[in-house]
Design a protein around this nucleic acid. Sequence first.
RNA 1: GCGGAGGUGGCGAAAUUGGCAGACGCACUAGCUUGAGGUGCUAGCGCCGCAAGGCAUAGGGGUUCAAGUCCCCUCCUCCGCACCA
Length: 854
Amino acid sequence: MNDASAETNQAQRYNPAEIEPRWQAAWDADESLYRAEGHESGKPKYYCLEMLPYPSGQLHMGHVRNYAIGDALARFMWMRGYNVLHPMGWDAFGLPAENAALKNHTPPREWTLLNIAAMRQQMRRMGLSYDWSTEVTTCLPEYYRWNQWIFLKMVEKGLAYRKKSKVNWCDLCQTVLANEQVVGGCCWRHEDNPVEQRDLTQWFLRITEYAEELLQGLDKLDGWPEKVRTMQRNWIGRSDGTLVDFAVVGHEEKLTVFTTRVDTIFGATSVQLAPEHPVAKAFAAEDAALAVQIEQLLDEQKRAREAGDVGAIEKHGVDTGRFAVNPFTGQLVPIWVANYILADYGTGAVMSVPAHDERDFEFATKYGLAVKRVIVPAAGTNSAEEPALPYTAEDGAVVIDSGQWTGESCVEAQAKMAAFAKEKGFGTPTVTYRLKDWGVSRQRYWGTPIPMVYCERGHDGVEPGGVVPLPESALPVMLPAQVEITQQGGSPLGRVAEFVNTTCPVCGGPARRETDTMDTFVDSSWYFYRYTDAKNETAPFASEKANYWFPIDQYIGGVEHAILHLIYSRFWTKVMRDIGLIKNDEPAERLFTQGMVVKDGAKMSKSKGNVVSPNDMIERYGADATRMYALFAAPPDRDLEWQEDGVAGISRFLSRVYRLVTKYGATRPAGATRTADSASRDGERSVVEQKLLRTLHQTFAKITQDFSGRWHFNTSISSIMILVNEIAASEAAMDAGEISPAAIAAVFDGLTLLLAPFAPFMAAELWQQMGHEGAIFRAQWPVADEELAREDEIEIPVQANGKLVNVVKVPAGSDEAAVKAAALADARVIARLDGKAVVKVIVVPGKLVNLVVK
RNA sequence: GCGGAGGUGGCGAAAUUGGCAGACGCACUAGCUUGAGGUGCUAGCGCCGCAAGGCAUAGGGGUUCAAGUCCCCUCCUCCGCACCA
C-alpha cells in the first residue's frame, strides 16, 4: 500500500469540514464500533457515564465540555483494553415541552422527539463515542412504565404515600415543587419567582426512611468531591438532641420541645411556639385578640419565607399569658409564640435559654425576659469566670446552678440529663433530620402518570373515593396523546375524560385516575440502570446485567445536581436494592463535577447575550478543535472562560499536526511492523533521534498519568504540543535522513494515538492515512519505555542563599559529590560569589545546589 | 454567621513530594513569507533598569539553606447552607 516513496513529502492541508463528516458517516454506519460487550468479553468492565441532557434541541457549551471529558475517558479506557459502557439518553419529560406546546401548538411528544433527533445529530457531529443501541428516552412508555412499576413497589412497601401538607407551589410552573427544587425561596426554574406554601394532598416518597443510610454512606464515597458530600450532609441535616415534655398549666396536652442543648435547660426562661403549633392554635381558639396577633406572626413568617430570607426576619413574639412547667426544675415559665420558630422543624416548639443562645438572647432582651446563666468555662481554662452573654460554648464548658448536674461538663450533662428525662418519662434522646420526604406529584401533563385510581363507590377496605393501586398488568398507564395544554391551574390530565374515567381494578366499579404526574427527577433517578438492558420488555432491567456493570465507575456532570439528582438517585438505588433488583448500595463509585463554561466572566445565558453556539464553533473550526479547546483552556473541575481566539489556536495546532503527519507519517521501514513501538534499537541513534524518542516516551508517561490521576487534560494537551513543537524542530533532521524510518514511524504513530481521545476525527483520519488497518480506538494505548524516556544529562540550578546564580549540566544520576564539584567549579558561579566564603553547601541530588554564603 | 473552592503576567493558565516562578496557548511587537477574507515561519514578550542587577505569586508576619507551596493574622472573589432550636 503505502511504500515509503510516493506519498512521502506530500504535506496536506487540514480541512476538518471534509474529514469530520466523512468519518462521522463511517462511524454512524458501524454500529459495533462503540458497542459495549457483555460480561463474557472477559475484559475488565468500565462504566463511563455523563449526565443525560434535557432535550432542549440545542447542545450548549456546558454539554460540549461535559461530553468531551467523558468521551476522552471512554476512548482512553477502550484503548487500555477495557470493556466500556458509554451510553447516552434523554431526560425527556418536563415543562419546556408544555410551554412549547402553548407557544407553537406542537404536541409535547413531537416537539421532544424532534429535539432529540436534532441533539443526537449534534452529538454525532461532535464525534462522541456513544453506544446508541442502549439509548434511553424517558418520555416513552417503554421507559416510564418502569417508573410506574417501581412506584407500585414503593406503595407496597409503604415508601410511597399520600398526605396533605404544606407544599411549595410555583405559579409560573403551575405545579408543586419538591423542597430540593426550591432555591433561596424561589423556584429552581424561575429564580426570581418566590414559591408559595399551599396545603395540598400529594404523593410523597419516604426518602427520610433512608436518611441515616444516605448520611453514613457519604463517608464511604471517597471518589466523590468533598463539596458534594458536604452539601448532601447539610441537606440531610442530622441533629442529635432531646425531646422534653413541658406540662401546660390548665391544659391537658403536653408541650414537647426539641433541643440540642438539654444541658442548659435550667436556664430556660420561656417556651417559644411556632405560630402554627397546635397548642398555639388551641390558645388562639380561646382568645380572639391572641388569635389576631398569632395570625400576624404567621404572616410575617410566610412573607419572609417567600422572600427566601427567613434569616433576616425581625423577631417578634407575643406572650400567651399561659405557663408551662419545666420538668427539671418544676418552675413555671411563660409560653410565647414567635415568628422565627418553624413548625416543620423539630417539634415546632423550643425552650428558650437566653443566656446560652444568640437568638434567645436577642429575643429575651427585646421583651425583657429573664436571663439565667447555667454554664461557665471549665476551671483551668483561661477565660474569665463569667464571659459575656450569650455564652454558647459546649466543649470546655461546665454546668452550674443545675441541681444534681452542677459541675458536670456540658457534654456529659447532656447525656445524663437526657437519660434522666427518659427514666422519669418526660423526655427522650432523639435524632431529627432536616431532610423531608420527597413530594413527587406534579400538576402537569408531560410526565409519568401515577398508576393509582380512586374508587368512587369504595369497597371492602377502601372508603368511597379511596386510593387503589393498579395491578402490574395494567401498566403502562399511557399518557393520552390528545391533551389541551392551557395555562389555567389544575392537572391538564384532569380535563381528559377518557383518561380520568376508568374502573376500579378491585371491585370493577367506577373510578377516577390520579391526574398528577411524577416529578421528572423520578425519571433520572434510575435511568443509568436501564442503559444496561435498555430494551427489556418484562422488567426495568435484568439484575444480572446491572450487577455486571454497577456501580458506575465514573459519573461526570455539573455540580448543580449535588442535592437534587444525586441524592434522589442514591435513594433510588437503595430502594431498588431492598426490592432485590440490584446488589450495590451506591450508584457511582466516582463522581466528577466539571466547572461551568463562562464568557466574559459570566455564565452563558440568553438574557446576558453571551452564548456561544457549539454549532458555530464546529462549523468554523471543526469538532476536534472545539472539543480539544474545551479540554485545554482550563482544568476540567474549574470554570472555563470561552475565548474564540483560543479555539483558533487549537485549530492552528491541529493544522500543524496534520501537515507533519501527512508529510512524514507514511515513512516506514520496509517490512517492519507498524506499531507504536516499532522503533528498533538496532544500531547507533543520532542525538536528535534520541531526543525525539525521549520526548515521545515522556509524553506517553505524562498523559497516561493524567488520565489515571488528576484529569488535568489541559496539561496533557500542552505536553502533546511540546512533542509536536519538537517534531517540527526536527524537520530538517528528518529530511536529512538523520532520523531512522523506524523512529519516524514510532513518533507519528505515537502522536496519533495520543491524539485519539482528544481529537478522534483527526486521529482516525491520520491512522488510516498512515496505512493502519482497523479503528484507532481499538489500538493499544502506548506504554512509555523508561529506558527511552530517561534523560542522560540534567540541568541543576545553583543558588546562593536561595537565589539563582547559574544552571550547570551534569550527567543524570551524578552523586552528591560530583554535583557539588560541578557547581563550585562553574566559572559564573565563582564570579558571582566574588570571593565570599561558602559556609555550607546543600545538594539535593537531581534537583539543585544551594550555597550558603556569608 | 457556618462550610467549601479560589486570588500567580495584558488574558486562559503551568509549577504531584517545599527546590530554576510563569511550561503550553492566546493577545501583542518586530522581521521575513504569502497574498489581499482567520496563511506560514523567525525572534521578542512579568515589572524596573542602557546594563550589571534588583523586585515580583492578594497584603502582613513566621518557619527553613530554600516558600506560590508549610504555619499565624488580615483582605478580596465565587459557590453552597443559614434564626434548624
